[in-house]
């Protein structure tokens, strides 16, 4: 680590508390559930797949945690890990986008908001993509779009199904129009997958909104959602401002989407892996 990085890391530590809160990364020993407010022993929470034992609140998972829960046999091999985002528009808002990328890489230990690879689930080969909200709110820029398209291509080559776990605030605005184009690219890739009759299972985690929900997240042959996840096209605040009224309770949550016909299964985390395997077996047969 260079001195430069060391100072950067120091500074970043200050932001960590806030980030933890926002990203549901529990404290070291005791965690307060964000929903029911009950204290939970951190080890118990981890043992319970990061689901509150008292109220069933599903904490956000990092991509690493999701991978560990899913590929219990360590069969997951990452592909295209080296792709990184570029500030090709020389975009600066409150911070230079290049710096934002650098800091996100340092903070999350990831190169971007989507981890992709190949692995085995219940003995069946799958191409899997896992989004990570801790990398710039899971926003989709060129790297997320490209890795998604390459994942689908890898699946077509291997003739295996695709499973993608989404969690995203939407398009990465720092890449402007190019982030919008990723919606076209990823959806077109899924069209090809469909032509090859290879299944695509989409798992929606909290939150999945904007450009990701309006492209690959909603296009599953089967759409699954974790309980209570916020899922929608527009964010609730934007809708409230537009229609000038309070939104009904449960609006845009997984159960609401299931009841309105947009999600096939609301699946608790403890049943998620076995449900995915069942579905894979169904399509394999």
């Amino acid at each position: 680590m260079s001195i430069h990085d060391w100072f950067k890391r120091k500074k970043l530590q200050k932001e960590t508390e806030y980030t933890r809160e926002r990203l549901d990364i529990p404290g070291d020993l005791w965690v307060k559930c964000y929903k029911c407010g009950q204290p939970i022993y951190a080890k118990d929470l981890a043992a319970n797949l990061k689901v509150c034992p008292k109220c069933n609140y599903h904490f956000k998972l990092t991509s690493a945690e999701r991978l560990a829960q899913l590929f219990t046999d360590n069969s997951f091999k990452e592909i295209n890990a080296g792709l990184t985002s570029r500030n090709f528009l020389e975009f600066t808002d409150t911070k230079d986008y290049s710096r934002r990328i650098e800091e996100s890489i340092l903070k999350s230990g990831l190169n971007d908001a989507l981890v992709t690879g190949l692995g085995k689930l219940g003995g069946l080969e799958v191409a899997a993509g896992i989004m990570d909200f801790s990398f710039m709110g899971g926003s989709m820029g060129s790297v997320v779009g490209e890795k998604f398209a390459r994942l689908v291509e890898a699946a077509r080559e291997k003739k295996c199904p695709v499973i993608v776990f989404s969690t995203s605030g939407g398009a990465r605005m720092q890449e402007s129009i190019m982030s919008l184009m990723q919606m076209a690219k990823t959806s077109a890739a899924l069209g090809r997958l469909r032509e090859n009759r290879l299944p695509y299972l989409s798992v929606l985690a909290d939150p999945t909104t904007g450009g990701v929900s309006a492209s690959f997240a909603m296009l599953g042959d089967v759409n699954l959602a974790e309980p209570g996840a916020l899922i929608g096209f527009a964010g609730p605040r934007v809708i409230e401002q537009t229609i000038r009224q309070k939104l009904p309770p449960g609006f845009q949550r997984s159960e609401f989407l299931r009841d309105h016909g947009m999600v096939d299964i609301v699946c608790e985390r403890r049943f998620l892996r076995e449900t995915l395997i069942k579905l894979l077996r169904f399509f394999k047969d």
Partner: peptide, 17 residues
């Protein structure tokens, strides 16, 4: 509100594909 109920995200996503 109605747009979300009737699946705005799904409608756009499907069109793209």
């Amino acid at each position: 509100l109605g747009a979300e109920e009737r699946g705005q995200a799904e409608a756009i996503a499907k069109n793209l594909r």
